[in-house]
Write a protein that binds this DNA or RNA. Structure first.
Length: 255
DNA sequence: ATGCCTCAGCTCCTGAGA
């Protein structure tokens, strides 16, 4: 199975690019984040014509997540059970015998802000739920835009950005706590080019200068880890005209 | 320098993203 995650920063704008990408990169599951559209505007017909069924959870202007797959997905869950949230950030489904969670983690804006506090609460709730999901579904993939870097290797300017948003110890604590549940960072299971990032600021020629962050991750459960045969960031779509600021991350699992 | 892009929308500016 091949699975991928991509923050498209408006599906309305990026739909042609997503369809092009799927044509060149057939996958079993694609998780999308930042749809920025309401459910009634989701282009289900366009994906169906391309051979993909969809489950989606939209929201006006902000957030919004979806899962695409050529085969039916079941047991769909939207957002974190038991965590009251007015933002559409999580969609989970079973594809084959694999549980897939696509998530758009809160940005957090700035340490100490209300949005940062919400991010911490959201992360705690996610962890409680994923812990339960892992019991029910040993074969589990948690992928999406985490808005958190693991360490300095994920940051183009570790000194300049130390303790800024995406790079704080509080955020990284939560990321390590997810790992401690029995999840594994797919990308780091394989050698990668130095300075591998998944997001680059639109401003100041961030992509051209490779001033980026690795904040989009695919975590796999311990049962899946030995079956993972590859993981990579696909920088090609970032070179498109009118690109998303994020690049897709792709994992291959021998199941 | 609370900006430098990009996107949505209460659209010709503002808020948010990261």
């Amino acid at each position: 199975m091949k699975l991928a995650t991509w923050n498209v920063n408006s599906l309305s704008v990026r739909l042609p690019q997503v369809l092009d990408w799927l044509a060149a990169n057939p996958v079993d599951v694609l998780a999308l984040q930042e749809l920025k559209l309401t459910d009634d505007k989701f282009p289900a017909d366009a994906f169906a014509a391309a051979g993909y069924q969809a489950q989606w959870f939209g929201q006006k202007t902000y957030n919004g997540v979806a899962l695409l797959s050529p085969t039916p997905m079941t047991d769909v869950v939207k957002n974190i059970p038991g965590f009251d949230d007015d933002m559409s950030r999580v969609i989970a489904a079973t594809a084959g015998d694999m549980r897939v969670i696509g998530a758009y983690f809160p940005n957090g804006q700035e340490p100490g802000s209300d949005k940062f506090e919400y991010k911490m609460e959201w992360l705690s709730a996610l962890r409680r739920w994923v812990k339960e999901e892992l019991v029910r579904h040993p074969r589990l993939v948690l992928m999406g835009d985490y808005n958190i870097t693991f360490d300095d290797d994920d940051v183009w300017d570790p000194e300049g950005l130390r303790d800024t948003i995406h790079c704080t110890e509080e955020e990284r604590y939560h990321l390590r706590a997810l790992i401690a549940l029995g999840l594994h960072d797919s990308l780091r299971l394989f050698p990668q080019p130095p300075k591998s990032y998944s997001w680059w600021d639109y401003r100041d020629a961030g992509f051209r200068r490779n001033r980026g962050l690795r904040i989009d991750h695919i975590l796999v459960s311990t049962a899946l880890k030995p079956l993972v045969t590859g993981c990579a960031i696909d920088k090609l779509p970032r070179k498109n005209e009118r690109p998303s600021d994020h690049a897709p991350v792709v994992v291959e699992i021998a199941v």
